[in-house]
Design a protein around this nucleic acid. Structure first.
Lengths: 334, 334
DNA sequence: TTGAAAGCGATACCAC
DNA sequence: GTGGTATCGCTTTCAA
């Protein structure tokens, strides 16, 4: 691998001039710029970014720490991040925390050690403080969830999304909607539970919720608990992975969404319209969330902003059949 | 941020000794090891990996280049990679090539520049040669698809998976199965098309295929083309994203899988059993593929192997309802 | 505008 | 077994 001194020798100039030329320093004369470009091409020179990072004390890599790569919402966010990152000349280290505080801090440590230029993090707990990242002075943007500390954030309006969904259930004729809420230590889960509570209370109905982890198992467990208890006739589910578990549990009990039980879940997915019956969802602008978060981070990395900023993006209710109350027939093809 | 000289001063030893102690060099005496450990803890010392990488000329980061983070198969592979990588003390840079040669080579360039210790790549074209990575002598394992060059690989047996699926369709009473094949420049798509051809030819039936990109649009287009042509009565679909498009297209034509048209697709997903009717799939051991590929890569990074290795993992047909031929009734709830 | 030289922080070689 | 120190490849003063 050719290094900068090789290019310098080949072009008959000093290494510092090569560095300046290749980094677009306007003080370099056109003639040198060209000669250096040619020499570099001839040698197949590729700057060693590690050396560069060591010297500049920062890389052009950002870290994205998300709870679950298997989650469509997260991958959609990731795509948004990726696109803007690439546009901005940054690469991405993707880290999967699995909603695990341990893994989350491990990844933050790694990000610091790798000298990332900035980090996007979807923290498991709001009272996390960006730990190692913060100490190292690395710019952070909290994404989808907030941090108590003074840190930029961008989230969706989960609470009003949940409220709207619950009101829709009520309007559709369901009388006892319950909530399969996410883990109580995760903000989005709490916000959604809050929105649900507001809506049912406003209708004079006692809230009925069960918490579960943000995965299929959590959804199945929460649904089972609710269904075994004071029989609800509709369910608001806190995320898409839980919804998968809820659907499995309903199937196990031969309960059909839309006829036997009303169903709305957070997060639209490609398969939501294809299942039987098509599922009503609260859509979140995931791609946009990722893209905007990355822009915020880039601005912060460049030092273009000083005040802490918080953005909130709206959700959208997509009505399909799982929430509209219809009396039988039962499927004949069971 | 404390650096190694600070720790050395604090512990009253030389920097080189600190380095040795912290890296578990057995020549360091217990007493020094302890004193240094304490000093490091006191200062909150965290080794700078960038400096370390520069000196060692390699990082403890590996790159994973996959075509589509939105694809469940890919994210399952990613999880396998991630788990083994973490066990081995490596971090992961995840790159999404979007089946785009340009992005693919850009990411390979970035990986080289970042001095990754190794790369896992699911190449768009088999005649790619690992480009920049190969030149830089960085270990590569091709995953899910092979490379013409002498490079380790691990794939699943797409061809026999497709053959088996087609035979199953035939045995189920469908008489004109067609194939929604993936892009012809992607190996897995060709292998699956080959398996399909073998099976129909063995049954004395003329193959009927349409190619499309590995996404929803590609699936819809291929299905439309086949359905508009010499009406097939069953479809073998080459991947899960295409299946989503095929399902949409069938729905558009009010064709119901299992009654009007037999359907099998590659890749099992959490939603496959939930759609209407539950979908028969060719399951690939995605997690295992990622995990094994990473182990292969780690062995190669450590220089534990010399000969080029190729692994093939079996697929498994999971029969659900979309492939079993049943005459009506049509859904009453349409 | 260009060149010389001093680091960035860790590792590894060579003395002791 | 431990300490001094050159080195990895690049950027960035400082002088010319």
């Amino acid at each position: 691998m050719a290094k900068i001194v090789d290019v310098a020798r080949e072009a008959g100039v000093a290494p510092s001039t090569v560095s300046r030329a290749l980094n677009g320093d306007p003080t370099v004369t056109e003639e040198y710029r060209e000669r250096i470009g040619l020499a570099a091409a001839r040698l197949g020179y590729r700057p060693n970014r590690v050396a560069r990072s060591l010297r500049k004390r920062s890389t052009d890599v950002i870290a994205l720490i998300i709870p679950d790569v298997g989650n469509h919402f997260c991958t959609a966010v990731t795509r948004g991040v990726e696109d803007v990152a690439r546009e901005s000349g940054l690469s991405l280290i993707l880290c999967n925390s699995d909603e695990d505080d341990g893994k989350e801090s491990l990844y933050m440590e790694i990000a610091v050690a790798q000298q990332v230029a900035g980090a996007l993090i979807s923290p498991h707990r709001h009272d996390a403080d960006g730990g190692a990242l913060r100490e190292a002075g690395i710019p952070i943007v909290a994404i989808d969830r907030r941090l108590d500390a003074e840190i930029d954030s961008i989230i969706t309006d989960s609470r009003s999304g949940a409220r709207e969904a619950t009101e829709h259930l009520l309007r559709s004729g369901w009388t006892r909607p319950a909530c399969c809420a996410g883990p109580p230590d995760v903000q989005t889960a709490r916000w959604r539970a809050d929105g649900y509570r507001e809506a049912v209370r406003a209708a004079g109905i006692e809230p009925l919720l069960a918490h579960g982890t943000y995965d299929r198992g959590g959804g199945a467990t929460a649904a089972a608990k609710l269904l075994d208890g004071t029989a609800p006739d509709a369910l608001l589910v806190s995320n898409e992975q839980m919804a998968l578990g809820v659907l499995a549990e309903l199937d196990r009990r031969s309960l059909r969404p839309g006829t036997d039980v009303g169903l709305v879940t957070f997060d639209d997915t490609p398969w939501a319209p294809l299942i039987d019956p098509p599922m009503t969802v609260v859509e979140q602008p995931a791609y946009d969330l990722g893209a905007r978060a990355t822009r915020m981070l880039v601005e912060r990395i460049r030092g273009e902003v000083s005040e802490v900023r918080h953005q909130v993006l709206p959700t959208r209710l997509v009505v399909r059949e799982s929430s509209s109350r219809r009396l039988g027939p039962q499927r004949l093809d069971l």
